[in-house]
Amino acid sequence: MIAGAIFDADGTLLDSMPIWDNAAALYLEGLGYVPEPGLGRILYPMSMAEGADYLIARYGLSQSREEIVCGVSAAIEDFYFHRVQPKAGLEAFLQQLQERGIPMAVATSSNRRLVEAALKRLGLLSRFKGIFTCAQAGAGKSRPDVYHLANRSLGGPKPQSVWVFEDAFFAASTAGRAGYRVAVVRDPSADGDREQLEQLADYAMEDFTDFNGFYQQALK
């Protein structure tokens, strides 16, 4: 049974994970610097401010921390507003769910404005009851609050009848522990956790091109 569907945004609906690895490199290239290999991995555990401090120290930038944060943020914003693409097969997959009367919502840890702009440009925003963020929920995806918030917009069906689509292991684990059924959508950024993801998933998907395969599993 499927009474509703909740989708993560980055790496699930949107092929957006590369920008988080490459935004700082794009910023440096715009200033005429050659970024070091693996810069995204170096900056990943840092906050934006910490990352700016690293760039200042490593590359001798004359820009202030605030200027660097704004510059990197602008590169990310430009990507969402103008360039990010949906995962393969997504539009038809959402159409199939909508035709079956299955309500949908987005649960994301990202900035609502960026996700909304991307979905609007791609013609997908109207498919969803709403976009719900971890900031709204008051907790990250180590807790299920954002999924519960999104679920209420679907009419509040029991979690056991709602599918959560995720690409990240920690988020998929949280949804599963909260009682939701979990569909894991492959993203290269999570390939290191692929075996664990497939073990915890109720359904594992390469992309959104096989609706029938998913729907048959959902009806069980």
Rank of each mutant, 00 (worst) to 15 (best):
K141N: 05
S189N: 14
C70T: 09
F132Q: 10
K220S: 11
Q217W: 04
G138Q: 06
A201Y: 08
I6C: 13
A139E: 14
D78N: 09
T133Y: 12
Q199S: 01
D145V: 13
N111G: 02
D78H: 14
R65L: 03
L14P: 02
R177Q: 08
S16G: 01
Y59G: 03
A52S: 02
L114D: 08
I102C: 11
D202S: 06
K158W: 07
P37G: 07
Q136K: 00
E206Q: 15
P103S: 05
V106D: 01
P103W: 09
K87Q: 04
E67L: 08
S153C: 12
V106F: 04
S62Y: 11
T133V: 06
A105G: 13
R58Q: 11
L14E: 03
G51E: 06
L219N: 05
L97K: 11
A201M: 09
E116G: 06
S73Q: 09
E206T: 15
R100S: 09
N151I: 01
D207R: 15
Y203S: 08
Q63P: 00
R152S: 05
A5W: 04
F7S: 11
A75T: 09
I6E: 05
R121W: 01
N212M: 12
F169G: 08
E91W: 04
G30R: 15
Y33M: 02
S161K: 13
D145T: 15
P86I: 02
L200K: 07
Q63E: 12
R83F: 03
F132V: 10
E77I: 15
R65H: 10
V184P: 02
I19E: 07
S153Q: 13
S73T: 14
E99W: 11
A117I: 07
E166H: 11
S126L: 01
R58N: 06
Q98F: 07
P18D: 04
F208L: 08
E77N: 13
L114H: 15
S161N: 13
G60L: 00
V72K: 00
Q85P: 01
M104S: 07
I6F: 10
K129N: 14
Q98L: 11
G138H: 05
A183Q: 13
V182H: 07
D167H: 05
S47Q: 11
R152V: 02
G32C: 11
V185E: 08
S62L: 11
G130C: 02
I6W: 10
Q196G: 12
D53P: 02
K120N: 09
V115R: 07
E198Q: 14
E29H: 00
R65S: 06
P157N: 08
L13F: 01
S126E: 09
A178W: 10
H148F: 15
K158E: 15
S64D: 06
L55G: 03
